[in-house]
Amino acid sequence: MNIFRLAGDMTHLMSVIVLLLKIHTIKSCAGISLKTQELYALVFATRYLDIFTDFISLYNTIMKLIFLASSFSIVWYMRQHKIVRRSYDKDQDTFRHLFLILPCLLLALFINEKFTFKEVMWTFSLFLEAVAILPQLVLLQRTRNIDNLTGQYVFLLGAYRALYILNWIYRYFTEPHYVHWITWISGLVQTLLYADFFYYYFNSWKNNVKLQLPA
């Protein structure tokens, strides 16, 4: 464990806590894409299949449980909670899951470290995580405005990915034969997807104006 990875995990944890708090306290999910949240729940479900078979560390297991619980409870809130679900903008959040799930599944069948169910599911979850934010970014473009909690949520998610890249660089130089191209490339793609959002977020923060994404 290095400082970059710990900071990355904590930032990731913060992003889901910010989101849960937003939904729980103001009983609203306006501006949040349910599609993205469902994809994240699928990412964690397919990545943490080994939660009960391969024990790595108490930290690892606890964090996996937190991510699974938070992602599924966010989906539950947005789908089932009688007040929250009313603020869900299903007419704007129309990104089709399958356009992301199928290509990631096919890619994982061809590009993986070992052709076993767990390994293919793990690789699928990596590719899916890289693109899971797309429905959220599309929704933000459509609604044109972004309330600061949603902005913080996407910002924290991007920061977690950037910290993970620093973690991989650190591990590459400090651990012999620590090489994971699949992880690195999908992680890089994911971080680049945030880059444009960061650009607008930083500019709005610098000019102290409300964050507006271009059409």
């Binding site: 080994d50 391969d54 790595i56 560390s57 690892n60 996996k64």
Partner: peptide, 10 residues
């Protein structure tokens, strides 16, 4: 196992 080492990240 090999899996544990390479899959220690969240």
């Amino acid at each position: 196992s090999r899996r544990e080492i390479s899959k220690d990240e969240l």
